[in-house]
């Protein structure tokens, strides 16, 4: 699909364009829409955002590259961002992060061979009283331990399998 002319996004794009004094200001919300449509900020999404805002695609690309929440390459179905900043680390987040990579057999920033999970560490997510914690596809999951995490991984695998069956 596309984001331009896609009825799913029309009202949202219009709302963002109306919010600001300049079109250019809408570049960040529109990049989120592109990421939602394509799963990552791909060249097509960049081109479309640039077209809507009358910008040069290279300008849009540099904005996308500046921020960590826009993904410039495909990620696993579940993008796990473990906070390992100081307060979380004081509560065992480094060990938790290392264990999770082992458990899933991935390197830092890597994706499991079945494309299910990408694991990376991030800086403080403003949840330091609920460590260890992570963000899964931008949803906070807090007060984690290994048992709870194993349960979640199993649940997500099951969800993905069901979704695949539903389509098949």
């Amino acid at each position: 699909m596309a984001i331009i002319g896609n009825p799913k996004y029309e009202a949202r794009i219009d709302r963002h364009l109306a919010k600001y004094e300049t079109k250019r200001s809408a570049v960040m919300p529109l990049l989120y829409i592109a990421q939602e449509e394509y799963g990552w900020v791909n060249p097509e999404g960049i081109r479309e955002v640039a077209e809507i805002l009358n910008l040069d695609p290279t300008q849009v690309k540099s904005i996308a590259g500046f921020y960590t929440m826009y993904s410039e390459k495909p990620k696993g179905k579940y993008w796990l961002q473990v906070c390992t900043d100081l307060p979380c680390a004081l509560q065992g987040a480094d060990e938790f992060h290392a264990w999770l990579k082992d458990e899933l057999d991935v390197e830092e920033g890597g994706t499991t061979t079945d494309d299910m999970f990408t694991v990376e560490h991030v800086m403080c997510l403003a949840a330091c009283d609920k460590a260890p914690m992570l963000q899964c596809n931008f949803h906070y999951v807090e007060n984690l331990d290994q048992d709870k995490m194993r349960g979640l991984l199993a649940k997500w695998r099951q969800e993905a399998a069901q979704a695949a069956n539903g389509r098949g």
Partner: peptide, 10 residues
């Protein structure tokens, strides 16, 4: 709210 250790505004 991105200072390490800050979670009040949230």
């Amino acid at each position: 709210e991105s200072e390490t250790g800050t979670f009040k505004d949230r």
